[in-house]
Structures are given as C-alpha cells and as structure tokens.
Design a protein around this nucleic acid. Structure first.
Length: 429
RNA sequence: GUGGUCGUAGCUCAGCUGGUAGAGCCCUGGAUUGUGAUUCCAGUUGUCGUGGGUUCGAGCCCCAUCGAUCACCCCA
C-alpha cells in the first residue's frame, strides 16, 4: 500500500476484474430468472430523505437508530440518508409516479445498500441486494410465487445448502397485542431475565424469544404465543401459502421465532438460510408488507417482497466450484514488423466487425512474449501477422486451446474461418 | 458498538530465546534473433500496516491507530 491514507472506506470493497466476472455472470442469470416471472426493472436513487426510512423501517429499529449513513446537505440543509435497504425507496417511487393507479406491479431492482455495521464476512457497510417487490397483490398466491421463484433460482445457480424457514406475523393489531402481552409477561419475571433480555424488554421483546441462553428457555417456552392472537383470515392466508409450497414440493420449516428486523412486515415472512457462511447465514429474506404503502402516504394496498444479499450468494457460489465461466476473448492479435504493425490494427477492426472479441497487442514485445500474453489472455486463438504474412495479405491462425494445428489464411477469410471453428467448438460442447 | 485472533514482496506464506529479511507462485529475459500452456537457467520486487515507546540494537517486546478476520449484536 503506497498511500495508506487513501484506502477504500472501511467495509466498502473494490470488486476487481477476476471477481467482477462472477458478478456479471450472476447478474445475467438473475435477470433471465426475473424476466421469466415477468418482474420489471426499476431504478431508484441511492440517496433519499432520512424521513422516508424512519417512517418505513421504524424509528426504534437497529437500522434506523444506529446503522444509517445520514447527513445534512450542506448546501440546503436537507436531511438525507444513503439507503440501507430498497423497499422503502421502491414504494416511494411507485407512489410518486402513481404506478399502482390501474394495475398491480411486479418490480425488481439491484444495487448497493449502506449500513454502518462492524464488517465481517458476508456483512459489509456497502453491500449489494437484489430486491423483488410485488405491489397491489393481496392474496397468498403471490407470497407463494415469490418463494417458489427463489427455489428456482437456487436450482439455476446450483446451490444445494439452502433451506427455507417461514412464519406468519399476523396482522398489525395482532402483533401489537402480542407484543403487549409479551412485555407484560416478561416484566412479571424481571429478575429472571438476563442482561440481553432486560435491554430488549421494551425495545424489541420479540427478540427475547431468540435467546440462546439455556437458563431462559423455560421462561421463553411459557411465553404468550403470537399464534393465539392471530385472526382467522391471517391463519387461512398462511395455510394457503403453505399448501402451494406443498403442492410444488418445496420443503420448509416453520420457525415461530422468525422475526424481521424491519417494522413494516406482517403476515407471511420467509428466510432462506445456509449453514456454510458462518453467522451470516441468511442469503435471502422477505415477506408481506401490507401496511407500508399506506404508511408512506399511498392508498391502502397490499404488497409482498424479498431481497437477496449478493455478496453472500456469491461466496456460496465460490464455495461450489461448479461455475465455469466462458472465455471472454476470441482472438489475441500478435504482430511484428513495420508493415504488419500497420496492418494489424485494421485487421483487428475487421474481426470485430464480424462479431469477434479481439485484443490487439499493444506496445513492445517479441513473438515469444506476445504469445505468452496471448495465452494468458484466455483467448481461443492467436492471430499472428509478421512480415511474411503482411506481404502476402495473410495471417497465421493458431488455436490456443485443445488440439488443432496453426494455418496460414488470407486475411479476408480469417473472420469467417474463426467463426466457423468457434461454432464447431460450441456444438461439441 | 463489545470481545478474540491476525497484518512480512503483486499473491500464498516462512522468519528460532530481540542482532536492520527469505521461499514458492507471478513477472522479465534467455536456452536455433517468427510462436504460448511443460522443462532448464538468470534476474527484478519490500519504508516487515501506520505512529510512538523500551533497547546499544525491534519484523519479533509495550502502547496507540488503521485494516482484515471470527464471534456477540444485528441483518441481506
């Protein structure tokens, strides 16, 4: 590090070309998958009014209380925040432009999110999510569709160590009632609570149920159950989601303690979890947020969505060496000699006109070192133009992968010949 | 935000109870001055994360700081 003071901000990473190749492949795969379900792309700004997140995510959540990159615009005093998640922005955009005026919307977005957390594997201050939102849909078929489409993506990506957990949070009224009962219950046994539980009692009592402290288990087991507060229609909704999952053979585990850390969720919540990423095992999570649209100022409208953590998914992918990325290059053009040098640039353009991906050797270097670079480039072929070829309008075509001899070919036939051989290699698989 | 471990060449790492640094890979050149991936030969590469302190002397010990990593917390 030549200048240690000019480093990337902590928790914000450079994605270098070798890794970016995997990102591109992943993004292509995801786009195809979203297309196949009719979800359409939407792009929102990275910066939003701070009030948006306070209202959507909840004032007393960890995200809003201590993880947001918030600042005052020094030019006009606006209170702004780098988005910590995408749903709030997406809802804001949909309302601002009246997209729900006469049709529900299936939308997706992707990009960086920002949370000021202590970085560790699978948790960064700038991280990337792919968010999928269905707005204006009230019935349980859309919840099920979103879970099913996740399952398809995992198959497409070749991921195996991923399991589904689901739960229902009921409606806002039921949640509120449950929360109050929970606080009353735990408050009754205040002297039995450990430090964590005491701290959470009024801030996030649901989280007490997650405690791993063995001494708390008895108390937790007897705590009021959310299920007892649920209205019949919420139960039916959940049953409907489960029955579609069964119909499609998607295995799930009901986790009554599955609680999303954002206030806007209600009814169905789900989480896809892996055991191979240590503590950051959640690679995808979401659920229904029927109240949010109204809360942000729209007409009441039901919705359901989820988000995937791109970094987490990619580190899962890297753990399984199944992904073989195609060579990004067809031709490395080697040339030497005054006439050949002048000719090579023209030839490279001709090859590109024919749809080939070509790197023209630039700078010095003998044939030997140019050939080394050709090999290292990953190109399928080296095209060599020296004085001999230049004088006869020819070029030498040399396959760099697999079998095949080099041959001299007229330059005008070169592109066609290469395309033919690439197609043949492709057909062989 | 709390705690544990760790920072040595571009990468992966070695470096003994303190005596001013090494290997492999990579890269460059050569082994018939027009041919890569194998082999052989030669060569380059470092403010030992940063800043202080202890010492005759610090990569090694102490403090601080930055960063990485693991866990807690939280979450994608």
């Amino acid at each position: 590090m030549s200048n240690p003071s000019l480093q990337a901000v902590r928790g914000m990473n450079d994605i270098l070309p070798d890794e970016a190749q995997l990102w591109l492949w992943f993004e292509d795969t995801v786009r195809e998958w979203l297309d196949s379900y009719g979800y359409r792309n939407i792009r929102m700004p990275l910066v939003e009014p701070t009030a948006l997140f306070k209202r959507a995510i909840g004032e007393v959540t960890d995200i809003v209380e201590k993880e947001m990159y918030s600042f005052e615009d020094s030019l006009n005093g606006d209170h702004l925040t780098l988005r910590p998640e995408g749903t709030a922005s997406c809802v804001r955009a949909v309302l601002q432009h009246n997209l729900l005026y006469n049709a529900p919307q299936r939308l997706y977005y992707s990009g960086p999110m920002f949370r000021h957390e202590r970085p560790q594997k699978g948790r960064y201050r700038q991280f990337h999510q792919i968010g999928v939102e269905a707005m204006g849909f009230a019935s349980p078929d859309i919840d099920a569709e979103q879970i099913l489409m996740c399952a398809r993506l995992w198959r497409k990506l070749g991921l195996t160590d991923v399991t589904l957990q689901i739960n229902t949070l009921g409606d806002a009224a039921a949640r509120k009632q449950h929360r109050e009962k929970l606080i009353a219950y735990f408050a009754q046994y205040e002297d039995l609570l450990d430090e964590d539980a005491t701290r959470r009692l009024h801030s996030n009592p649901l989280r007490i149920l997650d405690s791993k402290n063995p001494q708390m288990q008895e108390l937790i087991a007897a705590a009021p159950k959310l299920m007892d507060e649920l209205h019949e229609d919420a139960i039916l909704h959940f049953e409907a989601v489960k029955s579609v999952l069964k119909q499609h053979g998607v295995a799930y585990e009901i986790n009554p303690r599955l609680v999303r850390g954002l206030d806007y969720y209600n009814r169905t919540v789900f989480e896809w979890v892996t055991t191979s990423l240590g503590a950051q095992g959640t690679i995808c999570a979401g659920g229904r947020y029927d109240g949010l649209i109204e809360q942000i100022g729209g007409k009441p409208s039901a919705a359901c969505g989820f988000a995937m953590g791109v970094e987490r998914l990619l580190s899962l992918l890297q753990a399984e060496p199944k992904v073989v990325l195609a060579s990004p290059l067809d031709v490395y053009l080697v040339h030497q000699g005054e006439l050949a040098d002048a000719m090579a640039g023209v030839l490279a353009e001709q090859l590109r006109d024919a749809g080939l991906r070509v790197v023209l050797h630039c700078g010095d270097g003998g044939f030997k070192s140019q050939m080394k670079k050709a090999d290292a480039s990953g190109a399928q072929f080296a095209v060599i133009v020296g004085d001999d070829e230049a004088q006869t309008g020819q070029a030498t075509l040399k396959p760099l992968r697999g079998e095949g001899e080099q041959a001299r070919i007229a330059q005008i036939e070169l592109a066609q010949m290469i395309n033919k051989q690439i197609n043949r290699a492709f057909q062989r698989g």
